[in-house]
Design a protein around this nucleic acid. Sequence first.
RNA 1: UCCUCAGUAGCUCAAUGGCAGAGCAUUCGGCUGUUAACCGAAGGGUUACUGGUUCGAGUCCAGUCUGGGGAGCCA
Length: 467
Amino acid sequence: MQKENRTTIRQIYRQPEAYYDKRVSLSGWIRSNRDSKLFGFIELNDGSFFKNLQIVYEDHSLENFKDVIRLGVGTALAVEGILVETPGAKQPFEIKAESIKVEGPCPSDYPLQKKRHSFEFLRSIAHLRPRTNTFSAVFRVRSLLSYAIHKFFRERDFVYVHTPIITGSDAEGAGEMFHVTTLNLKEAPLTEEGGIDFGKDFFGRETNLTVSGQLSAEAYALAFRNVYTFGPTFRAENSNTARHAAEFWMIEPEMAFADLQDDMMLAEDMIKYIFDYVIRHAPEEMNFFNSFIDKGLLERLNNVISSEFGRITYTEAVEILKKNNDRFDYKAEWGMDLQTEHERYLTEQVFNKPIFVTDYPKDIKAFYMRLNDDGKTVAAMDLLVPGIGEIIGGSQREERLELLDARIRELGMKEEDYWWYRDLRKYGGVYHAGFGLGFERAMMYLTGMSNIRDVIPFPRTPKSAEF
RNA sequence: UCCUCAGUAGCUCAAUGGCAGAGCAUUCGGCUGUUAACCGAAGGGUUACUGGUUCGAGUCCAGUCUGGGGAGCCA
């Protein structure tokens, strides 16, 4: 794996006894360098592990001692030395250096310091911030969380479907979309009516970046039974909040022969599984979040893993909220969508754990959601979590073609735009359900990071796509 | 998009309308086991931008840009 018998710091921390009093070769970057007259200490991070390894170097045993003293934060090194135990010291072991070679120098205008930086500043150097403790932890956890999601579905025989990133027209209605075009915007061809003639565009029609893979996933669910998508999603909303981005990742499972209860069971199992997986496989990172980002994080997550999620219907929720209407700026009333303050009250005050809110009025939900027998509500569910709000939105889909068509017409949409989606009902259509999990929102909940921009490597938000 | 707060040294922040400051970082020096090491010294400024009020503006006013927090939209 590593040439020249090179060892990683992760290997040493995971099995130190295998390396004690042995010579090891390391490579990495200086996180800090302190020197005294005749000796010095380097904190080395090699990217393989959250923690650093301390390198001790001494004047009498290192020929380039005077040069090493001057090396600054960020310098890339190749180090050879003996791993020794250091009982009683703050670090468990360290390397007594025999040779230290500079692989890549780092001049003194390097923006990162040993000191703490604000997240705002680090966003302005998004290409360097993964070298900091916090972002090292965030992005290793992001990688693990992705893996845990695939593992969860794989173990349940779900088929992973790659739904298209570029989609035809805006037939999905989940939000404002980014246009995809090869037309020259200054000299776009026009139709006789004066609009842009997308027939001359690359695809011969108007196309956009996807806002959801759901409709495509439904097609595959009605062939493979249980499927999921996990990919990038784009919304051109001018949203300026800590929990919205223009480009984010979404997990969208879809199950045939499944109702809303099955849908919620899957969502609850998944959240518990993936959180448990990351806690067990990234203990150093999770302890760091628990100590420095969000005190009480692990206790809260362990509570999520071990307790049952709350369940309440929209109608019941409104009844509770109406009794407390004096505390809200927006008064709760049946038929209105729940405000953020309402959702927070329910999940943070009433339940103090994740809760499913189900059976919303049909007029505030999407056209494809299945109409309940009361004729007023649909089989929808939102999963609300303390601190973040909505993390999952899902529903049982309307499988009855005549009811779906009625809804499409009611909303002024055109049946022909949904011809293939309607075919899924016409040919062997069955009841089915699915949901969308905001991957970054799960990241925020899992790490305690409070801004979505700090859980995406190079975030895209309004007026911001520098990197 | 709306409300609100902010923008001063590389970073984190001070400065009643009256001389532009500190800590850290950087550079130099000191120190025989440091842990955000410590001690001493030096260098470092278009106070976001444009205009205005004033004898005098980092400070007051107007506009613009960028960022934070909140709301809407949603995941």
